[in-house]
């Protein structure tokens, strides 16, 4: 039986490795998800968009 990586780790590594810009926002329009590709496409780094700690 192989080791099952936990879901959060899997999701994070997927998000930072995809070349699709992935952005998540809540119903108020506030951005809570901003991956590496989004930073490259739009020029804003993750801390600039979401804030330093979240």
């Amino acid at each position: 039986m192989s080791v099952q990586p936990n879901a959060e780790f899997l999701l994070k590594s997927f998000l930072s490795n995809t070349d699709e810009a992935v952005v998540g926002f809540d119903l108020d329009g506030a951005i809570f998800l901003w991956n590496q590709a989004a930073a490259e496409l739009y020029g804003f780094s993750q801390p600039e968009i979401i804030g330093p700690t979240r």
Partner: peptide, 11 residues
């Protein structure tokens, strides 16, 4: 219930 939106975009 919908609590947000995830958007994927490509240039």
């Amino acid at each position: 219930e919908i609590i947000g939106i995830v958007e994927r975009s490509q240039a």
